[in-house]
Design a protein around this nucleic acid. Structure first.
Lengths: 334, 334
DNA sequence: AGCACAAGTGCAAACGTTTGCGCTCCGTTG
DNA sequence: CAACGGAGCGCAAACGTTTGCACTTGTGCT
C-alpha cells in the first residue's frame, strides 16, 4: 500500500537514489547500462515520481490555474478543453476554479491558486473590473487574460478583434441588401463598446444610419435578450436586420420573434456573435461571427508558457481575427 | 519577489517557525495573544502558506482529479461546475483532465494524476471499458465513477436510474394517448441497455408492442442521430412517438424530421434523455428526461470526500431518480 | 520550601525529490 | 611511470512545511 519511492528503487538497484533520479531525468552523467537497468526496474516496481516532492525542490509545479466565471458556460468550456489539451502537451496540468459572479470569490480563488504555487494563471474575467481586482497578484505570477480587451492595461491578453467582428457582420448584411440595420447590445462592458464601434464604423463606411437598441441588463443571456426583444418588438419594426452583440442575445431575440410571429429570416435577418456551439443546432442555425476559440486558448497557454519558461517580461495584446459564419438567419433583400 | 515563508514571519515575530505554523493552524497549544500577534503579522506581510510543502509532510494534497472525455461536452461541463464548487467548499481543488476518445489517454491521465498525488479521482467513463482500463489504479487511490452504471463492478459510482427514466418517458407518452412508440437508441453501452430496459418494462406494463430502432453508431451525437433518422424515415412511419435514448439523438431526429417535413410534435411526438442545456433553447424545446446533474456531482464528491477523509472501504452504488421535463415536442393524441 | 503540573514555546526530524560538489576508477598522454 | 582528465556515481543540502518531543516558565498544592 505504501508508495514506492526513489529510495526503494535505489535499494533494489543497489545504487544511490541520486543515481536513480538522474537516470530517470535523462542526465548525461549516467552510464547507459546502469540507466537501462534502472528504468527497467522502475517499470517492474511500478514507480511513479512524486510530483509534489519534485515541485518542492524545483520551485515549480508545472501547474497552471484556469479561472472562469463558470465552466458550464459553453464558450468557456470550449476554451477549457483546448487550453487543457494544449497545456498537457507542454507538460502542464490545469487547476480549475469557478470564480462565480462576484469579485470577492474571483479574488479568493486567485489567491488560493497562488498558495498552490501554480506557475501561471489563465483567467476569463468576469467583468471589466477583474483587472484591478486581482492586480495585486499579477506581480507574483504570470497571468494571461482571455477574451476581454483591456486595451489600456499593461497586462497580457488574447482576445478576438471585436470591432472587426461586428464590422464584418454589418458589411455582410449590407452586401445582402440591407440598409436599415439595428444594433442590439449591452452598454457597459469594454467588449460591447468595441463591438458597437465596429458596427458604427461599417455604418459610416457604407452610409447607413446608426441605430442602437441597448439592453438594460448588464449581462447578456438568452433570457435577458428575450425580455429586451419583447420590448423592442412592441414598437414598429422599421429595420430589416438586427446585429446582436452576442449569440445569447440573438437566441433571445429569436425566441421573442417566434412568439410574436415575426419571421426570421423572412421578415428580419439576424446575426449573433461568438459562435457558441448551440448556434449550430438545427432550428437555431444562427448566422454569427466566430471567435476562434481553439486559437485563443492555445495562443493563451503558449503565451503563458513563454512567460513561465523564459521569464519573458512585459505584456502582449494578442488580437485574433474573427470570421463570419453564414447560416440560416439572414436573407437577401432586393 | 522572493516568497515570504514561515521563517520570515517567525523572525519578524521573534518566535520559532513552529509557533507560527501552530498559530495559523489553530492549535490549542498557543497563547491567545501570541496567536493574534502572529496572525496580524502574517496579514501585514502578505504571507500565504505553501500548499506544496504542506502536502509533502501531510501526505495529502487536498486535490481531486476530475477526468472527463471532453470538458466541452455540455453534460460534463455542468457536472464539472457543480463538482468544483462542492469540492472547493470542502477545501479541495480540482485538477482537470480530458481523457479524449481513446483508452490509452484515459489511462495516461489517471496515471499522471496519481503522480500528482491527488487524494481522489472523479471520473466520467468514456466507455464501458473504462473500468478495467484503470482498474490497476483504483487500489491506490479512492475513485468514484460518474454517470455509468457498472452494475456488477465492485466500484463506487453515482448514476441516474436509467431504466426508470425511459419508463417514465414511455409512461408519459402512453398517458398522452400514444400506443405506437418507437425506441431509438444505441445498442452497445450499459447505459443504453438499461434505458432500453425501461422502455421494455413500460411496454409490458401497458401492453404496448416493443419497437426498437438501433443506431449503428457506437456514440450518440446529433450528427449520428440525424443520419440514422434519415434512414428511419425512409420507411413508412407507422408509430406516433419516438423515445430517443439521448438528447443528442433526439436533436438529430428533430433535424431530419424538419428536413423531410415531418411535423414534430404534429405528426410525431419526441422525447430525449439527459436534459442537456440545449434542450431548453427556444425552437428546440425538447421534452426530455432529466439527469439530476447537480445532485450527481455533489453526491459524487461527497462520496469521494467520505472515502478520503474517513478511509471508508467498500463501494456504494448511488442511483438517483430522474424526472420528466415536459416541453414542446409531445402532443396529446385522441 | 519543594514538588507536580499545565501552558506555552522551541528543536529537529521527516516528507521525496533534485543537484552541486567531491570522490573513485580507469584509460590516455607526456 | 607519473600525471592528468573524464566518466560514473555517491553524499548531503535544500525546498517549506507539520508535529512529536523536550524544555522552560509560572502557578497551586502539600
Amino acid at each position: 500500500m505504501k508508495n514506492i519511492t526513489l529510495k526503494d528503487v535505489a535499494k533494489a538497484a543497489n545504487v544511490s537514489y541520486a543515481t536513480v533520479s538522474r537516470a530517470l531525468s535523462g542526465s548525461s552523467q549516467i552510464g547507459s547500462e546502469t540507466r537501462e537497468r534502472i528504468i527497467k526496474l522502475c517499470d517492474e516496481m511500478g514507480y511513479t515520481a512524486n510530483y509534489v516532492a519534485r515541485s518542492m525542490v524545483k520551485k515549480k509545479t508545472d501547474l497552471i490555474g484556469f479561472v472562469v466565471p463558470s465552466i458550464d458556460n459553453q464558450f468557456m468550456s470550449e476554451l477549457a478543453y483546448y487550453a487543457e489539451t494544449c497545456a498537457r502537451a507542454h507538460g502542464y496540468n490545469i487547476m480549475l476554479c469557478n470564480s462565480g459572479p462576484d469579485l470577492k470569490q474571483e479574488k479568493a480563488v486567485v489567491k488560493l491558486l497562488l498558495g498552490r504555487q501554480v506557475d501561471g494563471i489563465l483567467i476569463c474575467p468576469q467583468s471589466p473590473k477583474t483587472f484591478e481586482n486581482i492586480q495585486a497578484y499579477t506581480e507574483q505570477v504570470p497571468v494571461v487574460f482571455l477574451s476581454e480587451n483591456l486595451r489600456d492595461h499593461p497586462q497580457s491578453y488574447v482576445a478576438v478583434d471585436n470591432t472587426k467582428g461586428t464590422y464584418l457582420g454589418t458589411e455582410y448584411l449590407y452586401s445582402l441588401g440591407h440598409r436599415d440595420i439595428l444594433y442590439f447590445g449591452q452598454r457597459r462592458s469594454t467588449t460591447h463598446q468595441l463591438r458597437a464601434d465596429g458596427y458604427r464604423k461599417a455604418c459610416q463606411k457604407y452610409g447607413l444610419q446608426e441605430r442602437f437598441f441597448n439592453s438594460t441588463y448588464p449581462q447578456s443571456s438568452i433570457e435577458n435578450g428575450y425580455q429586451m426583444a419583447i420590448e423592442l418588438f412592441s414598437q414598429p419594426i422599421d429595420y430589416t436586420a438586427i446585429l446582436a452583440s452576442t449569440d445569447s442575445n440573438a437566441i433571445g431575440i429569436l425566441q421573442a420573434a417566434d412568439e410574436l410571429g415575426i419571421d426570421i429570416p423572412g421578415r428580419l435577418s439576424l446575426i449573433g456573435f461568438d459562435n457558441i456551439w448551440s448556434t449550430s443546432l438545427p432550428r437555431i442555425d444562427l448566422t454569427t461571427v466566430e471567435q476562434p476559440k481553439h486559437l485563443m486558448a492555445t495562443q493563451a497557454v503558449e503565451m503563458l508558457w513563454d512567460k513561465i519558461e523564459n521569464g519573458t517580461q512585459g505584456y502582449v495584446h494578442q488580437i485574433l481575427t474573427p470570421t463570419l459564419i453564414q447560416r440560416g438567419t439572414c436573407r437577401k433583400i432586393d
